[in-house]
Write a protein that binds this DNA or RNA. Structure first.
Ligand SMILES: [Zn+2]
Ligand SMILES: [Zn+2]
Ligand SMILES: [Zn+2]
Ligand SMILES: [Zn+2]
Lengths: 175, 175
DNA sequence: TCGATGCTGATATAATATAACGATCGGCCA
DNA sequence: TGGCCGATCGTTATATTATATCAGCATCGA
């Protein structure tokens, strides 16, 4: 049960996650659901200890292993990704998005993630571009390398922050 | 001066690094040269605290900031890369390799790195594939995103480890 | 009933990285 | 010359991220 009171959108996504886990024979327990909810509500990469703080408001006894174990599970299930450059975690919208026909994500390789990380506003947009995926697969094949988990992270400025910076060199982040 | 006694190959690469810095108006100090030498000698990704231990054999007073400051400089100059997945550092062979005609690396974007990381033997091969670079640049452009620093990391099995694993399921790493 | 397995609680610790402040050294110019 | 400034490094302390370990408890099937 959701002690926190997530938004209805988040609750719908959590229900989808629950269904996904059921199909796979894994269990989205209350604790895992709670952590996933916090990640999704954040809407941007969020650190494990930030999650821990939030988790503690409704779960006094939570400790680092509490949140790391939940994150390990969610990573394994592909429900969240880790943004390595930020040591932070973000929800994967692939399985969870509202559209039933999918959202254009490629997750064929399963453990692959591609992010555009804005250093202006802290957003991280998952792209899962098939062309990048193909180029990387080809390069790996030429090297005789068998990829298991692939991380692509571009850090820079999103279109909004880029425009803001062009307008005012010392601009602050957009909403 | 090299207290450690690096291999002659490493010393040649350090001399190249020195020349590169001179051209750019930056200074490869003794300390930075020492740290770069340790990274190059390792020949694989190496953690900051491993470097610190090695550094201390010829430099009793070294502390974490000592090595992190040197690494920051070397990263800035593009002489080393950070492998985010491993929180480890590895030399960039682009400026330093023996062949005068370059070694096929693309470093046009300057702050870009692409690695094939073997979880069997710990090797990390820099590929800098132009096709990956182009795909990513195209995807970023479509999103209105301006990349500043790009990280591509594929973790998996290199050809040697892959062969070893196929032969014996519980094989140990190759040399 | 029993053992195996999976999840959680709880404490402690490891591993990675940075903050802060002062000392030293050189170059540069009044 | 003397003072200033920026870059580098020494030193201590602390912040941040992640894991090890062991115990309790529930669930499930033999
Ligand atoms: Zn995803
Ligand atoms: Zn932005
Ligand atoms: Zn490189
Ligand atoms: Zn290998």
């Amino acid at each position: 049960m959701s002690v926190q009171g997530f938004s209805s959108r988040t609750d719908r996504m959590l229900d989808r996650a629950d269904a996904v886990c059921l199909r796979r024979g894994s269990r989205l327990t209350d604790l895992r659901r709670q952590v996933l909810g916090l990640v999704l509500e954040a809407g941007r990469p969020v650190g494990a200890y930030d999650l821990l703080d939030k988790l503690r408001t409704g779960h006094k006894t939570a400790a680092p292993p509490t949140v790391y174990r939940a994150l390990d599970f969610l990573l394994e299930e592909g429900l969240v990704h880790k943004v390595e450059r930020l040591s932070a975690f973000v929800g994967c919208l692939h399985e969870l998005c509202e559209e039933d026909d999918g959202c254009g994500h490629d997750h064929s390789g399963s453990h692959t993630a591609q992010f555009l990380i804005c250093s202006g506003c802290g957003s991280a947009t998952e792209i899962d571009d098939p062309s990048i995926h193909a180029s990387l697969a080809a390069a790996a094949r030429r090297a005789g390398f068998k990829p298991h988990k692939v991380t692509v992270e571009a850090e820079g400025l999103c279109s909004l922050c880029s425009a803001a910076t062009a307008a005012r060199p010392a601009a602050r982040a957009h909403g």
